[in-house]
Design a protein around this nucleic acid. Structure first.
Lengths: 249, 249
DNA sequence: GTTTTTAATGCAATTATTTGCTTTTAATAA
DNA sequence: TTATTAAAAGCAAATAATTGCATTAAAAAC
């Protein structure tokens, strides 16, 4: 039997059943497990399936790479995400909110970082699933089609059941006096629940949003522990945010 | 024997069987293996076949373009999804499982269909969020990186709290006697919970999976109400699946 | 028609791949 | 934790590919 035939058969099995055991394949093809292992290794290297301990799984839809071409102020957000990343400790339990800045944080998580990560954002979850050592737990609920996060009573109830070490949130608007505010009431309720579920909360916020406000209040500025912007903490734009019992990064 | 003639024969063999062994050809044409090797090398250089260790394969055989839509047996799955779609009633509450066939169902939901749709699959959720009139509710929990669905105690508990009109599930393996089986124990538990949370359950399954089985059992065949394959319900491949108290579509 | 040149083929020696087996190391499950 | 199972690494036998060379067949030149 030709190697190509064998690999074709393996791919078929994987595509058909999504997941196969090397031992099953070896038996089916009547070759040694070593051969199957080597084949699967090759196919994995060619990105035609994914090798896992004891078998192989279909790539299927797993290779999702959303285009981040049209992200507003991507450079600033990347800068923020990088700074925020330094706050993460190995083996801690995180919660990552929605929004493009938080998404960027998820994307930049190192591949060798072991953490447990809750999220209620669909794009963030997609990113986290690319990180081999991140255990991802999704907070379910009704989806907001606009923000791609889950919202509503069920989401909030589930958040009330957990307490994470560190959460990263975004906000629509932030002001030294009015605190964090949003346009959408449901989102505010969800963010409140996120903050309540966190020992410490980190706000990721591009400087452009500083000194802006809207109708619904999420929390006061000193309810969050750290605020990360793309600016140097000494920057004078942040003057009003000092002396607010908040750590600037 | 002319070289041209020989090469023509080789190509015929390759097209006919998708693959050939050099030794077989040499014997069949009664020339030395060297000659066959040289012929195949030439044909490979002319891109008329692909030379591999020990033989040759047809171009179509190994043809794999990573950019192309990568879903195995997409046509069959589309056919299944279309048939399954006819079972959906306006304003009903659905639950859609993971897997590429279920994903295809989600993709093909009409834009004007108003339904409430639960899911535990991340890709399915992505699709549903494109449907303006579908209210999407995600069943949260720990993510399986392989299958991109949520699994585990929390997921199952949440499933126990709901009762949907109609659920669509896939399966890894299905056999008239052994019923629906899977490779993964966690997935079986989740699927059990899905079935329990449904007034009616529809199994989407391409015919290639018929009469296959694996180690963990999800349920018996008659625990699902309808099975949809790409085949005509009268097809003889489905003979063993009739008289199983199951509706074939 | 003969000679020369060129191409095609088969053979043998060498080199490279493939494969299964064994041992060691790593990962997972109980 | 310990026991079990899988992966990796190294080895050896079998098989395939490559190369150079000799022989034969075909084509071209004289």
């Amino acid at each position: 039997m030709l190697k190509e035939e064998r690999q074709r058969t393996i791919l078929n099995e994987v595509e058909l059943h999504n997941r196969v055991l090397l031992t099953d394949i070896a038996e089916k093809l009547d070759v040694s497990i070593d051969t199957v292992r080597r084949d699967v290794k090759e196919l994995d290297a060619e990105n035609r399936l994914r090798k896992v301990h004891g078998g192989a799984v279909s790539l299927g839809f797993a290779n999702y790479s959303p285009s981040r071409n049209n992200v507003y102020a991507l450079d600033e957000k990347t800068e923020i995400a990088q700074k925020a990343g330094t706050l993460i400790k190995e083996n801690s339990v995180l919660l990552i909110d929605g929004g493009t800045t938080c998404l960027e944080l998820a994307r930049l998580l190192p591949a060798d970082l072991s953490v447990t990560c809750f999220t209620l954002s669909l794009p963030v979850a997609m990113e986290l699933l690319n990180k081999p050592k991140v255990e991802t737990i999704f907070i379910g609920g009704k989806f907001s089609k606009d923000s791609l996060i889950t919202i509503g009573a069920s989401t909030i109830h589930q958040l009330s059941q957990i307490k994470v070490d560190l959460s990263f949130i975004g906000t629509g608007y932030v002001d030294p006096n009015f605190g964090l505010t949003e346009f959408d009431w449901d989102i505010v309720q969800t963010k409140k629940a996120v903050i309540a579920a966190s020992k410490k909360t980190v706000l990721l916020c591009i400087s452009e949003k500083l000194n802006s406000q809207h109708r619904f209040k999420t929390c006061s500025l000193n309810d969050v522990d750290t605020m990360v912007t793309e600016l140097d903490p000494q920057n004078k734009l942040l003057a009003n945010f000092r002396n607010q019992n908040i750590h600037l990064l």
